[in-house]
Design a binder for these strands. Structure first.
Lengths: 218, 218
DNA sequence: TTGAAAATACCAAGAATAGGGTATTTTTAT
DNA sequence: ATAAAAATACCCTATTCTTGGTATTTTCAA
């Protein structure tokens, strides 16, 4: 039996969902809350469900911050966002904060039940349309491929600069003279069109001239 | 009628898929290729399908680079990756390069047909397990929330530093003296534990002390 | 209203950087 | 084999940065 809590300030909508979900023989909605704080209170008293279905637009703490707050108390809870918002920012923030599913409010009870099953089975639930948005967010943050024609050595030195290393430190690392490093940096500045260390590091990171180390394996 | 190309070096597997998909009354596989180059050749001759199903591990150009190459010729083609790899890096790279679907090779013909239908309908196709991985990649790149106790003014100045501005420029912008700015920077250095401009900018961007402007609305 | 925190401002000196040169040696690709 | 590109190295100077101080005024929360 999968236990469920709902956080939703529209009580009639909440009741409707609860009634529909409780029709199933494997999912039981134990509590309904109209705000995050009440749910947190019960969580910190040691109670917790398998899954929480939460709205985003809520009185007091919003649902996005709610995800974070909930997870900080019980990390294992699967959280599914149920909202009318389908903009990139909400979607992005919800997922970043640890949501495991994202449903729109026009979803049918069956779709909601499917989503609950998916997250308890270790998957994440998102429909094809929203998945496209997620995919687009990813490809939008793709590195710009812009190398400004930096050579191998220049790229290597750029990496050290981004690490905050000084000219002398880099000279020691590369077994060259500080003057050589200085010359390389000078050439990098010209190629990248910057005139300060901070500007270079910033551009290098923002435009993906150096690896950012985004994720972990598997 | 949805037209399809397959890029897959395992010819018997490719044939099998083609035969299965052609059973449907709405999807027709027009061509099979064993490498990306052959597909690109036909694309540059003006031919193009609605959807391309591609492997990743291919002789010559790999499927990930293939996506980029294909999209650079015909941007509108929907590309679905069909591979045995389920690691984060391949998944991430494929999506970043513009894949609109990601299927594992153990998918059934029906699942592949579903995926094709989804992408031509403007969605993206990914199963719940892989979706969880995508979600996790997102949450892994979440900002660290670490502000190092920077004050409002310090954060403001940090933003200017990340923009590559000098002390004097910042002083003019903030209508304060260069000495004041210098003092703020000194304090920032102590709080953030760095001792160079490059190191500060790097840490600020990598740890999300300043906004990175990741995505676009909707 | 009354401390504490934040923001302001200045001094000074050694270190490092930015930007302008020039020039030789190595690599690399044709 | 040879020309072009890359890497190496040095000089010089004005500017900027880093880091240690001290000290006054504002702001803000208890």
């Amino acid at each position: 039996m999968t236990t469920l809590w709902i956080i939703e300030d529209n009580i009639s909508f909440s009741h409707m969902i609860r009634t529909a979900l409780n029709q199933s023989d494997w999912c039981k909605c134990e509590h309904e809350f109209t705000n995050v704080a009440d749910a947190l209170k019960l969580l910190s008293m040691g109670k917790s469900p398998d899954v929480i279905l939460t709205d985003i637009n809520l009185p007091g703490m919003n649902g996005i911050d709610g995800i974070k707050a909930i997870k900080s108390i019980v990390k294992e809870i699967e959280i599914i966002v149920l909202t009318v918002f389908d903009d990139n920012e909400k979607l992005f923030d919800a997922i970043c904060n640890g949501a495991n599913g994202y449903l729109l409010k026009n979803s049918s009870p069956d779709e909601i039940l499917d989503a609950i099953k998916i997250v308890v089975d270790g998957g994440s639930s998102i429909n094809a349309g929203l998945a496209r948005k997620v995919f687009n967010i990813f490809s939008a943050m793709k590195q710009t491929e812009n190398t400004y024609g930096l050579t191998k050595r220049e790229t290597e030195i750029l990496n050290y600069l981004v690490d905050g290393k000084t000219v002398n430190e880099i000279a020691k690392i590369t077994f060259t003279s500080p003057q050589t490093v200085q010359t390389h940096i000078k050439n990098i500045y010209h190629k990248v069109h910057v005139n300060s260390r901070g500007g270079l590091v910033s551009k290098a990171l923002k435009e993906g001239l150096v690896p950012k180390g985004v994720f972990t394996k598997n």
